[in-house]
C-alpha cells in the first residue's frame, strides 16, 4: 500500500499491522488510551465486526485483545497491510 491508511479503510476479516497509534499527533489523550488498550506499533490488528446501522463502532482484535471503538478513534491508528507469509 502506498498511501497511509487507518483502521477505517479495513474490510471485515482484514489483518494489518499498526504503524502509528497517534497519527499526526492529532489526539494525544486518545492515543494514550489506545495504548492502554493494547494498541502498539508493530502489533497485528484484525477488523472483526462493525456495529449495525452505519458500521460505527468497530470491533477489532489487537494482539490478543478484542476492543470496541468508534470510527473517530479508529482514524488515529495508522495501519499497513500485513505482509503475506512468504
Amino acid at each position: 500500500m502506498i498511501k497511509a491508511a487507518d483502521i477505517n479503510t479495513m474490510q471485515r476479516g482484514d489483518i494489518a499491522v499498526i504503524v502509528a497509534v497517534d497519527r499526526a499527533q492529532r489526539d494525544p489523550a486518545g492515543a494514550q488510551r489506545l495504548h492502554e488498550m493494547g494498541f502498539e506499533e508493530g502489533v497485528d490488528i484484525e477488523l472483526l465486526h462493525r456495529a449495525p446501522l452505519g458500521g460505527d463502532p468497530l470491533a477489532v482484535r489487537v494482539g490478543n485483545m478484542t476492543v470496541a471503538l468508534r470510527k473517530s478513534l479508529a482514524a488515529l491508528v495508522e495501519v499497513a497491510p500485513d505482509l503475506p507469509a512468504a
Binding site: 463502532p57 478484542t66 476492543v67
Partner: peptide
C-alpha cells in the same frame, strides 16, 4: 464523547 472498551472473552 467517544467509545472505547475492551471486549472480554
Amino acid at each position: 464523547p467517544t467509545f472505547l472498551m475492551e471486549m472480554p472473552k
